[in-house]
Amino acid sequence: MIELSDVSYSYGGGELLSGISLTLAPGSFHFLTGPSGAGKTTFLKLCYGDLLATAGRVTAFGQDVRGLARDEIARLRRRIGVVHQDCRFLDHLPVAENVALPLIVSGRDTAGEAANLADLLGWVGLSDQAGALPPSLSGGERQRAALARAVIMAPEVVIADEPTGNIDWEMSLRLLSLLVELNKMGKTIVIATHDLNLIRSAKQQVAARVLRIRNRGVQLAGADL
């Protein structure tokens, strides 16, 4: 599904990530951990084509990401749902429209998807906030709205960057269960987090693998978590 072979990345200074080779198979569930600044967000951006590897090759759905034209990158983004670390909403549009944004920009008939949208908002528990503007949402509400937006196009892959960064344990578990549910529907899930408890909790529900960024490389963590 997403394949990295000997990928390195540098923002201009020294190499942040180096010689990474791994495959995110369809239907797999991965966690990505590592200290702050290790390059988790950078790694995820390489996966969804927001950054291009400075060396090596990233393949998504069988296509070399480097060779994609701008329009093809846009199409790739519709197949990979992303929960960004900072959520990234349009603050002048209500939550419902922000969640529906991928539909709107792909030119789909949003009126026809209204029931879908309502279901989705109910699923993440934001039915009451549908008409609110993003700046008025709490941290957890923002994260859930971001998750709803990430899955509205029914993407094959969902990438979540610190989806439980701002929220309490109970809400974190709720969000995790939504992601586990998606995985059971066959979606490929990648979650960057440094919340070890979240990882432990997930391992009880799905066969999750844990990737750890260390010394600029990515290793598969053992049972030592």
Partner: peptide, 15 residues
């Protein structure tokens, strides 16, 4: 900022 968000959710340049 807005354009960045639109690109991230898959908007093409023409849109």
């Amino acid at each position: 900022q807005v354009i960045g968000v639109l690109r991230l959710v898959g908007a093409r340049d023409v849109y």
